[in-house]
Design a protein around this nucleic acid. Structure first.
Length: 266
DNA sequence: TTAATTACCTGAGAGC
DNA sequence: TGCTCTCAGGTAATTA
């Protein structure tokens, strides 16, 4: 389940293909979240990959003309292979000018890959909120954003139009570390909570990136390597928290939420 | 206008 | 063994 740290690690592992030219594009399955442009080969052929960047959970391949915008959804992966290894979940294969392959593999097809003349005009990119690792993400901003919000803090933090990059796992972990109940309304977090949330969000994301992300089910980087940050999780997918308290599991907005009713205050 | 629910998707695991 | 059911969750569309 790629969230900001996992996407960042994928981007870092993809950087070594920058400078390479796309020779051809083969579409093996066009029914992704966004239907694959059927003329993708014409759009990408002979384009050079200049840079690879992350915006929220999106991956941007900047080309010498135009950009590729991609989202990994739940099970998407980019793989770099020297020779193509057949896999039934390979959806799109880009052949590069050094003979290697960049493969978009996605079991559940919640992700997509699309060509844009400029990634900033992408309909999803346009709606994104603040980058949590940027200096723009401050306690003051978080306090301001949460005013009058009647949704719970868990779902607020997941909303990519406010803060980008956080997914279910990291939100669950952050709320536990900040001792805030996921059921508390967003408008009821105070200034001190916001200071702590901002610090903890930045800290956990940086830690996760330096540990290669969290590999829960399908996540791998472009070299098919797993991360190890799942070993540092305190409460996600746990029955007992580090203090020995029973962890409760509830549903919020159709998503599972783990929390400790003793440590986390409503 | 805002908040909550549902659809999309498929493998894994549980239960019978 | 094999079938059915439930669960996992990122995002947008739909509904309230």
């Amino acid at each position: 389940m790629p969230e900001l740290p996992e996407v960042q690690c994928v981007v870092d592992s993809l950087k070594r293909i920058s400078g390479k030219k796309i020779v051809s594009v083969k579409i093996l399955n066009d029914r992704l979240r966004e239907p694959v442009q059927l003329n993708l080969n014409d759009l990408l052929k002979d384009k050079i990959i200049l840079e690879i960047e992350r915006r929220g959970k999106f991956i941007i391949f900047k080309l010498n003309s135009g950009d590729i915008v991609s989202h990994l959804g739940m099970t998407g992966k980019f793989l770099i292979q020297e020779s193509l290894i057949e896999n039934k979940f390979n959806r799109i294969v880009l052949e590069l000018d050094d003979g290697s392959f960049l493969i978009y593999n996605d079991i559940r097809k919640f992700g997509f890959i699309t060509y844009e003349e400029n990634y900033t005009s992408n309909k999803y990119i346009k709606k994104l909120g603040v980058e949590p690792l940027s200096e723009n993400f401050t306690a003051d901003l978080l306090y301001e954003l949460t005013r009058n919000k009647k949704t719970n803090i868990k779902q607020f933090l997941l909303d990519q139009s406010f803060i980008v990059g956080l997914g279910n796992i990291y939100v669950i972990e952050v709320l536990y570390l900040c001792k805030i109940s996921p059921k508390r309304m967003a408008k009821d977090v105070n200034k001190d909570n916001c200071i702590e949330l901002v610090e903890e969000i930045k800290r956990i994301l940086k830690n996760a990136i330096s540990n290669g992300g969290s590999s829960i089910s399908d996540y791998r980087d472009a070299d098919d390597k797993e991360g190890s940050f799942q070993d540092s999780h305190k409460i996600y997918n746990k029955k007992i928290d580090p203090l020995g308290h029973d962890v409760l599991k509830i549903k919020q907005g159709g998503r599972g939420t783990n929390y400790c009713p003793i440590c986390q205050f409503y």
